[in-house]
Structure formats: C-alpha cells, structure tokens
Simulated assay, not measured.
Amino acid sequence: MNAYVSWFRPARARDVSVTFVHGGGGQGSEFLSTPDGRPGWVHAFLRAGFPVFVLDRPGHGRSHWREEVLGAALPPPSYEALHPRFVEPARHGGWPEAARHAQWPDHDPEAGDRFMASQGVMATTLAAAQRHVEAIGPDLFALTGRTVLVSHSAGGPCGWALAAIGGDAVAAILAVEPLGHPGLRHPLGTFADGLCAETPAGRHDPFGRPIAILTGEASWMRATNARAAAFLRERGCDVAHLLLEEHGLRGNGHMMMSEKNSDAVAALMISVLDRMLRPASAGSSGGNKRARSPDTET
C-alpha cells in the first residue's frame, strides 16, 4: 500500500520534525497554501525551524485511489454537502455556533471553489481509513524520524492510530478539531475504541505523549472535542484543550488552516508546541499507559 509524502527542511533545522495528517476527503496541499493563495501552515513551521513532512494518506491527493488495494470509495463530495458547512456556515446556520463564523477568505470569490476542487473521495468506513494509514505507518516514521503529528478532522483517528505504531517516535500530537469521542455514532462507523473506530494495530499507547486539541469558536466540533479532551484527562494523559477564542482568535470554523487568520493560528500552535517539547522527558511514553498488542512514496 502506498502513500505520498513531500518534505521540506530549513537550513537550521530542529531535531524533531512535524508531520501533517489531513482529514476526510482532503489532501496534504491544504497545509501548503490557503484557498486565497497565501502561504500555508507548512511555511510557518519551517520558519520556526521544524523539518516538515506532508502526508497524502493512501487514496488521497497525490496518492491515487486504487480500488483493488484500498477497497470501495465514497462518491466525490458535492457542493451542497460541503460548501455551506466549510465556506458559508454563518449564512446557512447549520448549528448554533455557525453565526460566529467570520474567518473564511471571502475577499477572494474563488476561494470556495478552490477548496471544493481539493476535496476528493474517501473510504466507506472510518475503520478502513484507519487500516490504510496503519499499513504505511512504519515506513512513514522511518522517513520522518522523531516527529510531531499535526492531524485534522477525520485525520485525528488516523493520528492516534499512527501514534500507536510510532511510540517514542511521536514526540507530541497537535489534533486540530479531531473527529471522534468514545461511543460517537458517525455515518461511517462508531467510535468503539476510545478515539478510534477500531482498536489500533500498534502496540504503543496512542495517547502516551503531550497532546493539544485545538477547536474554533464557530465550529460544530466543540462538543465532540470537549468530550475527547475529557476522555484523555480521565486516562491521566498530558492534554490541553485550546479554544481559539480564549487566545484572541475569533470566528474560526473547521478549516482554520484555510482561513484569514491562519498565520495567527499557526503561531499559537508553535508556541504551544514549544512548551510541549521543552521538558527533557518529551518524546518518552508518558501519560496513562495502555500496552497494545525529496517527494517520495512510502
């Protein structure tokens, strides 16, 4: 099974990298640039000295979906399904917090179309998506070395599953609006094993390193993320739940890496990550232990 990884290394690089794991039907390009053409989060982390790896999960972006390997895929998403939720939530009011959304780059009338053009097919179940990323996990960590996983949305469960494979190779996790909490019934599957759709294949504790969850003020993910953070705290994990409005970042929706204040969100993430990596014990498998039995393809 293949995935596509692009990487970038600053001239004076830190000894820990950052690996971006996209969500749903998205792709790694979401972190390279914004829909209105500004530099994306990759550039902010490079300026901060991190080597950066950008994963296109199996079947996404530059890793073409092959049904004979990955199984069936859902149809490509429609404008009617995604555009109101991600681009114009305040106009459509699909959830109470949607009225606060104010950060989509609407000064560029084509930004919404560019976002939609980046969205592709995805697995028919969350369990299948998890298995796909677990299959490429060992090769991914051989490439990244010790790394911080920055996951987004449906890439969140994939991030936990990767951490169970990577163990001490995963220094920290920044989970941006990760999908899932224990028992959540999603159209693509039930979260039957904590924050994953099925028990991770890796033998390490998925949550045994510093974790930060980021949630936007105008997102429908607020309750889900709060329940995920509570689950981690109950396990005794090292976790912080960052509500962006409490840090002066107002009006963000689910695609905060694409929004007008994306640079400010990245700056907050980097400052939090600096604190997470500061202790000498960073990178060790702390927290509540639960043992579990150039561009390239990996």
Rank of each mutant, 00 (worst) to 15 (best):
Y4G: 00
P10R: 01
P10M: 01
P10W: 00
A11T: 12
V16G: 08
S17G: 12
T19Y: 03
F20N: 09
V21C: 06
Q27M: 02
S29R: 14
S33T: 14
R38H: 07
L46I: 10
P51I: 07
V54D: 01
G59L: 10
G59T: 08
S63W: 09
V69W: 12
A73Y: 02
L74C: 01
S78M: 04
H83A: 12
P84S: 11
A90K: 08
A102L: 05
W104H: 01
P105A: 08
R114D: 12
M116Y: 14
A117F: 15
S118T: 13
G120T: 08
V121A: 12
T125V: 12
G137V: 02
G137K: 00
L140A: 04
A154K: 11
G156H: 05
G166L: 01
D168N: 13
V170P: 02
I173G: 13
A175R: 02
P178I: 00
L179C: 11
H186E: 10
P187C: 02
T190R: 14
D193C: 04
G194V: 09
E198Y: 08
P200K: 05
A201K: 06
H204M: 07
G208H: 03
R209G: 03
P210H: 00
P210S: 02
A212V: 03
L214S: 03
N225Q: 11
A230P: 07
L232I: 02
R233Q: 15
E234N: 11
C237G: 05
V239L: 05
V239M: 03
A240Y: 00
L244V: 06
L249Y: 05
G251A: 08
M255A: 14
K260R: 14
D263Y: 08
A267F: 06
L268M: 03
D274E: 15
R275V: 15
M276H: 04
P279T: 15
R292A: 15
D295C: 14
T296H: 13
